[in-house]
Design a protein around this nucleic acid. Sequence first.
DNA 1: ATAAACCTTAGAGTTATATCCAAGGTCAAT
DNA 2: ATTGACCTTGGATATAACTCTAAGGTTTAT
Lengths: 142, 142
Amino acid sequence: MDYQIGALAKRLGVSADTLRFYEKNGLLAPSKRSESGYRLYSDKDQQTLSFILRAKSVGFSLAEIKELISLDQNKVDFACGDVKELVDLKRAQIQTKISELQAFERSLKVLSDACCGGDESALNCSILQTLEDDGGLYGISK
Amino acid sequence: MDYQIGALAKRLGVSADTLRFYEKNGLLAPSKRSESGYRLYSDKDQQTLSFILRAKSVGFSLAEIKELISLDQNKVDFACGDVKELVDLKRAQIQTKISELQAFERSLKVLSDACCGGDESALNCSILQTLEDDGGLYGISK
DNA sequence: ATAAACCTTAGAGTTATATCCAAGGTCAAT
DNA sequence: ATTGACCTTGGATATAACTCTAAGGTTTAT
Ligand SMILES: [Zn+2]
Ligand SMILES: [Zn+2]
Ligand SMILES: [Zn+2]
Ligand SMILES: [Zn+2]
């Protein structure tokens, strides 16, 4: 039911140092301590850590994750609408990032499709020529 | 035709310091210097900077961007296949990230759809309850 | 010919996100 | 009761990607 820091760290593939760091920064405190002061994490703590790692893996900063998590701790101070607004804001940010990634991937695909991929020198590689010249990958100007 | 560092920085919304930093780290050197040593950037330099910023905005590290750009400078040492392989690797990484983002967005949408978004206290907000409980956002365990 | 607004370099400082280390306490097994 | 694998804290160090400072040179306008 309860894990020591090393066991939880191992289960989710992070270091014990990282868990201490998350605690220091208000993201995840163990729900208990043993008599001797050892951190004891519950299954729910593990789920929270899962959430943190998943959010992190898709580009949320620890500060953003903390904001989302801490809504829960201070829910008395908020309305349903506040919570929903925050979640929808994050969704919009994710969608923007997805669109950017898709545009970039399409650009790279155009490059890749035009290249023969053979063994000869890259001196005349169409990819590099496109990188050098106008248009192409640069098509979507900043 | 040629911009000083401040002009290029302003055009693309970065600082002059950032451009000096990119130069020091081998990402973008101005194609010329004035008599007095001022950096002079060409239109092509501007396009390279555009590329750097776009790649950065979708999550590439400067090291990755540098690798892509420096292929061009050392093209004699590579084969067409090497270049294509690098581009395709980046594409696969982008696609992975897109999939992760889409899964996360779907999770958040489920949460958002279930919340009334009203003015009343968030004490019973379904979003926060899901964050607290099993499953839901945590459904895809790490 | 002087002021304002540029530019130069070298190097120090910042923020986010960890990671490592030292000195020591705890626990389980032999 | 000693060994080895855990754990504790506080503080130093690391990496990426900037950002700022100091001390000074250049350009342009008045
Ligand atoms: Zn080829
Ligand atoms: Zn090619
Ligand atoms: Zn509600
Ligand atoms: Zn709600």
